[in-house]
Amino acid sequence: MIEVEHLSKIYGSTAAISDITFSVEPGEILGFLGPNGAGKTTTMRILAGYLPATKGTAKIAGYDVHENSLAIRQKIGYLPETPPLYPEMTVEGFLHFVARIKGISAGDRRQKVEAAMQRCNLQEKRKVIIRKLSKGFRQRVGIAQAIVHDPPAIILDEPTVGLDPRQIIDVRNLIKSLAGTHTIILSTHILPEVSMTCSRVAIINRGKVVATNTPENLMTQLTGGSGYELEISGEPALAKQVLQNISGVILVESMPTSDHYRPHLRVISQPGTEPGKDIAAALIRGGFDLYEMRRVSASLEDVFLQLTTEEKQLSPETETTETETTETEGETI
């Protein structure tokens, strides 16, 4: 549904994005994850037809974004970070206005507006002036204007930024309800947003896509999967030697602790292995007291920090980072 190939945007000598490639399958929610200034908004604006790319191609529903800009705008719904709302209009009046400028016929307009309000739970707010709405409801109106013409692809740029926890849950559930019938690309730097909403992740850093995969596969590929945290007695260096000889153990490292008499160790195991029993037995045979042994799993935060603080390459869809970028502020209606 969405295909991006070797896309670049260069301002003078600065590359906002550089040679990025990724795709989004029909009905999928792709989390476009990266730190502030990584190039997320630039990419979203190119896909929405707001910015031209310097190099590369982007296609949505088979149409080239640059060559078929008007056709693309009929195929997408776009919510920029700041919702493009007219604060003096009512919710219903604004959505009718949007439906009209998006080319919905007069005969279908009321039904489309009602469907968008129902999907975004805005029926009770239909006559309320937009400036009087809470930020969470304004965000709902922003999503409603993006889906009122029932587009096959939806582009959401930081849809939950600035919302309170209750509002975040509501918007997140709304986005998840759109999956399947719509293809969604969700730009964010909020890690829980991705793990709770998206089926696949593309991580961008310094203008380059450094990994594309499911969150689970990324966690396994980068961190080696799950492991164990141990609290023991004895010399940690000797314990490391004992543990490193166990089949399935790929890394043993010390963890920070204020208790010098009970060192804390982290043991990372190979994917598909369960060396917990062997770890406990080896420590006891070696004369170490085992006070606590806790199973831990890698998190998306571990993956994100590793990819955005190191120049690490993954196969097959990973590239190393090069130039640091900044993104301009401001949105368009």
Rank of each mutant, 00 (worst) to 15 (best):
K127P: 05
E88R: 09
Q111R: 15
E114D: 15
A146H: 03
P83F: 03
F97L: 04
I129E: 13
P80C: 11
C120D: 07
N121Y: 10
P80Y: 11
A71M: 11
A144G: 00
V113M: 08
I76H: 15
T82L: 05
A116L: 04
G136S: 14
F97V: 00
P83K: 00
A144F: 00
Q118S: 04
P80D: 13
A106F: 13
Q118F: 03
Q145Y: 08
Q123V: 14
L79S: 07
S69R: 14
I143E: 01
E124D: 15
R110T: 11
K125I: 03
H96A: 04
E88T: 10
G103H: 11
R109T: 06
M89G: 13
E81T: 07
G136Q: 11
T82C: 06
S69C: 13
R100G: 11
N68R: 11
A106K: 15
F137D: 03
L70M: 12
K127Q: 12
L70D: 13
I76K: 14
V98C: 11
K132N: 14
P83C: 01
G142A: 06
R109S: 14
L70I: 12
N121A: 12
K75E: 13
L79R: 10
Y86W: 03
K135F: 02
H149I: 01
Q111K: 15
V113P: 05
K102M: 13
T82Y: 10
Q118W: 01
R126S: 15
Y78S: 14
F137R: 00
L95Q: 01
N121C: 08
V91N: 05
H96C: 07
K132E: 11
E81G: 06
P151R: 13
P80A: 12
R131K: 15
R131S: 10
G93L: 02
L133A: 01
R110I: 08
K132W: 02
I130V: 10
A146F: 08
V113Y: 04
E92C: 06
Q123F: 12
R100T: 13
Q139D: 01
Q74K: 15
S69E: 12
V141D: 06
R119Y: 07
P83W: 03
M89F: 10
K112M: 06
F94M: 02
Q111D: 14
K132P: 00
E81I: 03
V148H: 00
R126P: 09
I130S: 02
M89P: 09
L79W: 08
D150M: 00
S105I: 00
I72K: 09
P80L: 10
P151H: 14
I129W: 06
R131V: 02
I72H: 07
R73C: 12
P83Q: 03
K132I: 01
E81M: 00
R131M: 07
M89K: 09
Q145R: 05
Q145M: 09
P80K: 06
E81F: 03
Q118L: 01
K135H: 10
A116M: 05
K112Y: 08
G142L: 05
A146Q: 07
C120W: 10
G107K: 06
L95G: 02
V128T: 15
Q111H: 14
K132S: 09
S134H: 03
C120Y: 09
P84A: 15
V128C: 05
I101Q: 06
L133P: 00
A116Y: 01
R131Q: 15
I72A: 08
E88Y: 12
L79Y: 12
E124F: 08
P80M: 10
S134G: 06
P151E: 15
Y86E: 02
R138T: 10
H96W: 04
